[in-house]
Design a binder for these strands. Structure first.
Lengths: 111, 111
DNA sequence: TAATTACATTGCAATATTACGATGAATGAA
DNA sequence: TTCATTCATCGTAATATTGCAATGTAATTA
């Protein structure tokens, strides 16, 4: 079918999945890593940095903006993109909370 | 096209994206969270837990196994699934390293 | 052996994603 | 005003994902 049955899952599960989806394409990871390094940049910089078409980068940036990880402000003719600090912290906590849930079983009888 | 141009990106970028993809569906998140809580379980337990068909769960489990996050060992008629401790640690470090890269700009002149 | 249980795999339909050319909108420069 | 720059959006083609019924496989039980 291709239609995810989100109603079967908790809000937390859906939220983790939604944010993970933002990270699930290397172009978006590359954009995020570039923003982390450079602090702010414009669409055409990213077109230079990666080898994708401008329309494609714009589409990826929109997804990152929709999730809230990235912010963009109009700066004359260009748009300044950067990491949304508050959301970044939130995402970090959400994933860390999950990562820390694992406590290896005392006996190794599971697998 | 629908075909990700992985050759444009670094190994690290592709690896983060690949692992994030494993987390990008709420059913797989639910499976992982359940395994974290319960330590080990079988396919049919998950079918009860979530409302998806057995074939669908099996498919999600296969993806998690392919990535390495989950291990499965045959236990008579059933298969015991559990978190792969080594891979879990690796994934945790990979994501934490990324999360910690962010240092908010001294001046808020970006966005 | 025959039936049962637990999963995996196959095949398919519905939908989502990826990529990009073409085009549109807005700003600034000549 | 006209042109160039920057980016968003639209439309479309190629491919990927999701979900499940049907079927296959292997081990256990009667």
């Amino acid at each position: 079918m291709g239609l995810t049955k989100t109603e079967l899952f908790t809000d937390q599960q859906n939220e983790i999945a939604q944010i993970a989806k933002a990270f699930s394409h290397p172009a978006r990871v590359a954009i995020i890593l570039h923003l982390l390094k450079i602090n702010a940049c414009i669409n055409s910089d990213l077109v230079q940095e990666m080898g994708l078409a401008q329309a494609t980068i714009s589409q990826h940036l929109r997804e990152l903006k929709e999730i809230g990880i990235v912010k963009g402000t109009i700066e004359g003719v260009s748009v300044n993109y950067c990491i949304n600090a508050e959301k970044w912290e939130e995402v970090k906590l959400l994933f860390n909370e999950m990562f820390e849930r694992y406590n290896p079983p005392p006996t190794n009888d599971c697998c």
